[in-house]
Design a protein around this nucleic acid. Sequence first.
DNA 1: GCGATGCTTCGATCCCGGGCGAAACGTCGG
DNA 2: CCGACGTTTCGCCCGGGATCGAAGCATCGC
Lengths: 236, 236
Amino acid sequence: MKDGPDIARLGTLIGDPARANIIAALMAGRALTAGECAAEAGVSASTASGHLAQLLDARLVVVEVQGRHRYHRIAGPDVAEAIEALMGLAARVGLSRTRPGPRDAAMRAARFCYDHLAGETATLFYARLVEGGLVAATSEGVGLTPAGRTRFVAEGLDVAALETRSRPLCRACLDWSERRPHLAGALGAAVAALALRRGWCRRDGVSRTVTFAPGGAEALLALAGDGTPARIATRR
Amino acid sequence: MKDGPDIARLGTLIGDPARANIIAALMAGRALTAGECAAEAGVSASTASGHLAQLLDARLVVVEVQGRHRYHRIAGPDVAEAIEALMGLAARVGLSRTRPGPRDAAMRAARFCYDHLAGETATLFYARLVEGGLVAATSEGVGLTPAGRTRFVAEGLDVAALETRSRPLCRACLDWSERRPHLAGALGAAVAALALRRGWCRRDGVSRTVTFAPGGAEALLALAGDGTPARIATRR
DNA sequence: GCGATGCTTCGATCCCGGGCGAAACGTCGG
DNA sequence: CCGACGTTTCGCCCGGGATCGAAGCATCGC
């Protein structure tokens, strides 16, 4: 009863609807001001400020002051992963807050998970990475194979620079809507940025949802090596 | 603000200290009666009963009636994984409830995570499985290689029977104390049961902690194929 | 049957914590 | 220097929910 991490504190933090809404909004990966958080959560500015103070105190959120604005964002990938895991459990065990409407379906198809892509296409992308031998399991989790490294370097990603950060290069994040893994970690973030930069997909306002351009999903999947352009030697 | 799973409900459920204590106690994988839960949480029997009713209603816990006793346990592996993920976040971001005492150190070294082994030795075991080519990444996550299958079958595990369940055979569960993966899934549970059966380790009362017998940890690691007995051909 | 035991329901109490508006604080733009 | 804006702090209200004891239901042992 008295050992282990203080899980109750996190629970109360997440348990309040207003705070949960703020967290959900921040899970889009964007940095929001206190006023924007208040609007997202449907509460007054003062209450939102109080909630953000609590989230800051618990280190779930970090703040970046810019003039008279205070931009809040999720503290780090580990926080985002745990929240995502909770969302997965909630989706399975409980129910959604809204009956599956059009926006919900769009979010299941493609969304941002903190700083990388999630949803149907993202899980397909991850599956192709594994099947193509670009990503494989390691003792520390999952990692980039030599073939995968040359592949992404050829696409212009500075893999060496990504590795210098303390953040792991590759992570398999369990997709809450698909129940299958998608690519997270520094590489996942870099791939998401690449997809946005090349116009394969586009973010919708402050929401987490992402819409793919025509052919965008195919282009992303081709990046995993199975498609037409620049076919690369895969082992197996 | 209005899309996505209802994460707040889970938060309030976990947020109450009494419920969190009950959940933590149940995370040992054992089925506890309402009275035992009350003792673990330090509340009266009636309050514990109310909390268990809420956890049942949210499907986080299932109950099994046996005479006049009602045995409660975590509803399934997915619930346990999400709770474990929350514990990991709490351990990193917040703090533990107790200053790292002896019991805490013991739990970090070896413990039960719902129905499989976690902690230092468990992560080493997983690392050897991967390095030995017995377990590898698949498009669905992580899976047993042909070499791994023959290995575990040779040790007397009925892998085919494990596969028939809807539960995935292999899962990489992120260890909250080690920050590295350990083996979960049906195979993880089977291996944990095997270790108990062969006397490699022993459970301590109702706690989650596990103590290894002399040579027990080595025996477990040898099961991953690197040790002395019955060396098997590994690919790579 | 008849008490003991385990558990749940009920009623009553009480307190923590979210909520808002008003005012204070800090910053920006003249 | 002053007003506008974003944000935080303060004071107050209020409701939900956690808690317990006692009573009501089951089940077991005899």
